[in-house]
Design a protein around this nucleic acid. Structure first.
Lengths: 105, 105
DNA sequence: TCAACACTTCACCAGATGGTGAAGTGTTCG
DNA sequence: CGAACACTTCACCATCTGGTGAAGTGTTGA
């Protein structure tokens, strides 16, 4: 669901995690470092991202390696694309009206 | 702030409002109709969208007309674009490694 | 073997969020 | 004028969210 994706990205810590992971894989510890936040909090945040389908996790020894799942963001791209199409159409129609040739539809 | 935008879009009602407005302006009443929700709730939702810079409001007689502000979404587009660039680079580097010519950096 | 490590689960708390009904503001129109 | 209308503000409530410390799980390595 698109709202789940947006909700996952609506938290600064999680947005930073996703941005960090877009530059390459990282362990939970590496994700936690820049955030002055407790391990349980990072676990929770990553869990939200996994549930939203934005991130994958795999165990490697005693660490957990996280990676981004770009496919989940393509849903956002599609939605944005649709919206752009619609409002461009609106702008075109408005431009037509302003030019006086009111046959926009 | 990007997280503010995502937070605004993280609610189904608000996402529907934005999608609706991308197809053209609407009054508060028109926005409320499909949502089986009380007028105060709609006022609140639109307020969140206005605060996030996604929507504008203007009074017309005793109605309030809302319109989308696409500029706010361009911030999302830019972020998505950056991310895509990064992970494409990662995929390229991985492809290089798999082909055996390990001079990706 | 067993201590240190990396992380998770648990129980809990404060504050934010989404909803409500009731009352208020300003506009239209008979 | 005054009733109906469109919307907002207010006070309030239940639930969700992001955080914590303490205890638990499984892995590594001296």
């Amino acid at each position: 669901m698109l709202t789940t994706t947006f909700a996952a990205l609506a938290d600064p810590t999680r947005l930073a995690i996703v941005t960090r992971l877009s530059r390459g894989e990282a362990t939970m510890g590496e994700l936690a470092t820049p955030h002055a936040i407790s391990p349980p909090a990072i676990t929770k945040h990553v869990h939200v991202l996994v549930d939203a389908g934005l991130v994958t996790r795999r165990k490697v020894g005693r660490t957990v390696v996280c990676a981004i799942r770009p496919e989940a963001l393509s849903e956002v791209e599609v939605w944005l694309g649709d919206l752009t199409t619609y409002w461009n159409r609106t702008v075109d129609r408005l431009a037509d009206l302003l030019e006086g040739n009111g046959d926009g539809e």
